[in-house]
């Protein structure tokens, strides 16, 4: 087995693992009983899934700029997801009767 085929097998393994985490996040979104546990499930699972997916694509990236963009996308998603989860959780804790109007 040459180095290139080893690298592409590693990439496929990373991508499949990332897809598994996306499925786990969706199952958590559909099956968990209340709002905060759903938030807990999916703000972690889908970030790990996207991280593994970008890692898998990074192993086959054609150039430095593409690789840099892939890493940058993951970092932006991490920042946005952490901020968003915090805001939604704060709102869910404070707001009673948010559906009243």
């Amino acid at each position: 087995m040459t180095f290139m085929t080893l690298l592409s097998w590693l990439s496929v393994a990373c991508i499949l693992a990332g897809a598994f985490f996306f499925i786990a996040g969706t199952v958590g979104l559909m099956r968990l009983p209340d709002r905060l546990s759903r938030l807990h499930a999916l703000t972690k699972a889908d970030n790990v899934g996207l991280g593994l997916l970008t890692l898998g694509l990074l192993l086959e990236a054609p150039g430095l700029l593409i690789g840099l963009k892939l890493v940058l996308i993951w970092l932006f998603v991490l920042v946005a997801s952490a901020t968003g989860a915090h805001l939604i959780a704060k709102r869910a804790l404070r707001a009673d009767g948010e559906d009243a109007h």
Binding site: L42, D46, L50, S81, I88, A92, E98
Partner: peptide, 13 residues
């Protein structure tokens, strides 16, 4: 509404 927005965020990711 928080559930909806949360799910929309997962959709974006």
């Amino acid at each position: 509404p928080s559930d909806r927005l949360m799910a929309a965020q997962l959709l974006g990711t």
